[in-house]
Design a protein around this nucleic acid. Structure first.
Length: 458
DNA sequence: TTTTGAGTTGTTCGA
DNA sequence: GTCGAACAACTCAAA
């Protein structure tokens, strides 16, 4: 740090980029020198499974490299309590600490604590969202509980103008080394940093026109693959939307999904218990069953429903799952096994590279029918129909459930109903090389309808 | 205040 | 095989 002149501290959290970052931009225009800081929080690190952990560490290392390349400075790294780290950095030359806010309850509590511990001004921004919470409201001034009215407002809401970066120099103190942690975690699953994100966005722009049709086919790359960038903030949602435009129905449909992201974030900000309590409280009275063996079969991809097993194995092996299959597997846990959605939410949150409290919690509540604007409870996915419809040739199943790969495209969706000769010819022995279904869907469907109906009538 | 219309991604049944 | 309607009835936004 320079011996004289003012400085501004930028606390990076889940906005791991320099471009289109309001906290960074304002800070670099507010002082002679900027100190970029990242604090590794063991609470968050421990909550992350191996994939997100490796991605996070890769992103932090990449941010350091970007700062070095573009400014000659270094990211100041510490593994400690953020309130302590930041309070120690502040001195009488510090004009302020700058960061982009996060809607997660852990983050809002932590940030309040940090702000209280600091003796200098704090400037907070909403660089991780398209529109700030509270800025997209119904005519009555409330957050819409139905998505479409939210979207209709969202799409016509003016964006807050974001400032352009200033010319401050960047401090060079690197703090602690991450090398040991990075080495232990292994390489990031996705090419990290703004460079990796820019490549993914450019790639997506070549495919986005087909989004509305291709997004439902898990065997092809029909989705953006930008979820990790939105999680870690290597891309801003505004930049994504601006880059893609809405000139085709596919692009428009994708930008609509960015609106869903804001809606869930705004919802979590207003309802911090999104991952622990049903938004529709009557559904917290459902008589969930918790069967350890069933949950384990689901988590490890051994349910006997090939599309479910394929998805759960993709998650376990890669830290990512195709969106259509996230719905199918989540529906299976809740509506076929009648296991509380919160168990599934936690499992996904642990393993997903892109796990985001608002998105994961909101979408689990959507699947379970317990959330705002959720699927009606009687709309129960049939995993076999979903499989036939969205993986018609079984290509996705064959990739992740190789013991079924020799079955033809008719038999592969439902091995338990296949002819014995077909199974034998494909080397499949139910209950041995591949599990028999752990539950009968028709029975499970009736069981779930009854359980949901029971709490509505009480 | 009352009314009206609409609601991410489904399934099943019967014609 | 394809199509439309019923499912079961509710909540919410907006006029």
């Amino acid at each position: 740090m320079s011996e004289s002149g003012t400085n501004a501290i930028v606390w990076f959290r889940r906005d791991l980029r320099l471009s289109d970052n309001p906290a960074w931009a304002v800070a670099t225009g507010s002082a002679d020198e900027v100190v970029p800081v990242f604090v590794l929080d063991d609470t968050l690190l421990d909550a992350a499974g191996p994939f997100r952990r490796a991605q996070l560490l890769g992103e932090v290392a990449a941010l350091d490299a970007t700062i070095r390349e573009h400014t000659g400075g270094r990211l100041f790294l510490r593994r400690a309590d953020p309130a302590q780290v930041l309070a120690d950095l502040v001195d009488d030359r510090t004009v302020g600490v700058f960061w982009n806010d996060d809607v997660a309850p852990y983050a809002t509590a932590r940030d309040a604590r940090v702000e209280a511990a600091l003796s200098c001004p704090v400037q907070r921004f909403w660089g991780t969202l398209f529109h700030r919470p509270g800025s997209v409201l119904t005519g009555k001034g409330t957050l819409s509980k139905v998505f479409t009215p939210f979207y209709n407002r969202w799409i016509v809401t003016d964006v807050d103008p974001w400032p352009t970066p200033g010319s401050a120099s960047v401090a060079t103190g690197p703090g602690e080394s991450l090398d040991a942690l990075v080495q232990a975690a292994g390489p990031a699953p996705l090419p990290p940093g703004e460079a990796g994100a820019a490549d993914r966005l450019a790639d997506w722009a070549r495919r986005a026109d087909n989004y509305l049709t291709d997004r439902d086919t898990p065997s092809i790359e029909g989705t953006s693959m930008l979820s990790s960038d939105l999680k870690f903030g290597t891309l801003s949602p505004r930049h994504i939307a601006q880059y893609l435009g809405t000139t085709t129905s596919g692009r428009e449909g994708f930008v609509r999904q960015l609106s869903w992201r804001d809606w869930w974030a705004h919802t979590l900000y207003e309802f911090p218990a999104l991952t622990t309590a049903s938004v529709r409280p009557e559904y917290d009275n459902i008589a969930w069953r918790y069967d350890e063996a069933d949950f384990s079969a689901w988590a490890t991809g051994q349910t006997g429903y090939p599309i479910v097993d394929a998805g759960m194995r993709q998650l376990a092996q890669t830290g990512w799952m195709h969106n259509r299959v996230r719905m199918i597997t989540a529906s299976f846990l809740v509506k076929d096994l009648l296991i509380d959605w919160r168990h599934g939410e936690r499992h996904f949150r642990k393993l997903l590279i892109d796990a985001d409290l608002a998105q994961n919690g909101g979408n689990w509540q959507w699947v379970a029918g317990t959330g705002p604007d959720a699927a009606p409870y009687f709309r129960i996915f049939n995993p076999t129909s979903q499989s036939r419809k969205f993986d018609p040739h079984g290509a996705y199943i064959r990739t992740w459930v190789p013991e079924l790969s020799a079955l033809d495209s008719k038999a592969i969706h439902e091995p338990a109903a296949a002819a014995p000769l077909d199974l034998a010819g494909a080397g499949v022995i139910l209950g041995d090389t591949y599990p028999a279904p752990i539950v009968d869907h028709a029975f499970a469907r009736e069981r779930t309808l009854a359980a949901y109906k029971a709490v509505k009538e009480s």
